[in-house]
């Protein structure tokens, strides 16, 4: 397998606080990788850096072997889409206006939506099944519906890579599964891939091929879900004990806190 996204020795600090330290990782085609770790481990910061939103202090970032700073912004944005936590939408816009923004990387400053744009938007809407939300004001949508709209916006870009920051953190179980299934089915397509920050360990074990466990800004453990979510790791880094079963569908249910 070849890496489509590669990060090497990423370091990032805010003031005196070392947020990320010497992080290296890669994402391969057809893969879903989960980034897990306790609060404050640097998961969101890492995702921001991988998405090209924040620049690291040092380290190399490559997309298909090309360094980030050599890539044209919009060309980069066409290949890699970022799904923000909570999917905040600041104005009470119509649902379709939000989805259309996903086509921005394909448009110039003045061009209008073209045939290919409309096809991509229609496909994305069909994929996530949110045709019933069109014509609605996003301010009236539930958190789950908002996240679906945001995901549709990401799909409309037709990116190869999706980076999602805790996309299911605030959702009910039904919407959690729905979002994960949608990202899953899209990323299984050979050339696509996704990197997801997750808090829910069961979902991480169930949907991810590989997990990267961050702790204190370093990669503490990396590998298959059953290896990373070992009892020892959960005890050491999360300070919890879990009931774990890695047979389909995988379950990792915290049962007790360790002091």
């Amino acid at each position: 397998m070849s890496a489509i996204l590669q990060a090497t020795n990423i370091n990032w600090r805010i003031g005196n606080a070392q947020i990320l330290q010497d992080i290296s990782l890669q994402l391969n085609a057809g893969e879903i990788v989960g980034i897990i770790g306790p609060n404050g481990a640097g998961k969101s910061s890492l995702l921001n850096i991988l998405a090209g939103i924040t620049e690291p202090d040092s380290g190399a970032l490559q997309l298909h072997g090309a360094y980030y700073n050599t890539l044209e912004r919009r060309a980069f944005a066409r290949q890699l889409a970022y799904l923000e936590q909570e999917a905040r939408i600041n104005w009470p816009l119509l649902t379709e206006r939000v989805i259309e923004l996903g086509r921005s990387p394909h448009q110039s400053a003045y061009s209008r939506l073209e045939e290919t744009d409309n096809t991509a938007i229609a496909q994305a809407i069909a994929e996530t099944g949110i045709a019933h939300l069109l014509g609605r004001n996003v301010a009236t949508l539930s958190q789950g519906e908002k996240m679906l709209v945001a995901l549709t916006r990401v799909f409309a870009t037709q990116p190869q890579i999706i980076l999602a920051d805790e996309p299911v953190a605030a959702l009910d179980p039904n919407h959690q599964l729905m979002i994960m299934e949608l990202i899953n089915s899209r990323s299984r397509n050979k050339s696509n891939a996704a990197l997801i920050v997750l808090h829910d360990l069961s979902l991480a074990a169930r949907y991810c091929d590989r997990l990267i466990l961050l702790d204190g800004g370093r990669v503490a453990s990396e590998g298959s879900p059953s290896a990373v979510l070992s009892d020892e790791n959960l005890r050491e880094f999360y300070k919890i004990e879990c009931y774990s079963d890695f047979n389909e569908p995988a379950v990792v249910q915290p049962t007790r806190r360790i002091n």
Partner: peptide, 15 residues
């Protein structure tokens, strides 16, 4: 228009 989704997302959209 892209800023409706916040600065981080606007940046990720290639702006």
């Amino acid at each position: 228009d892209a800023m409706s989704l916040g600065e981080a997302t606007a940046k990720s959209l290639g702006f």
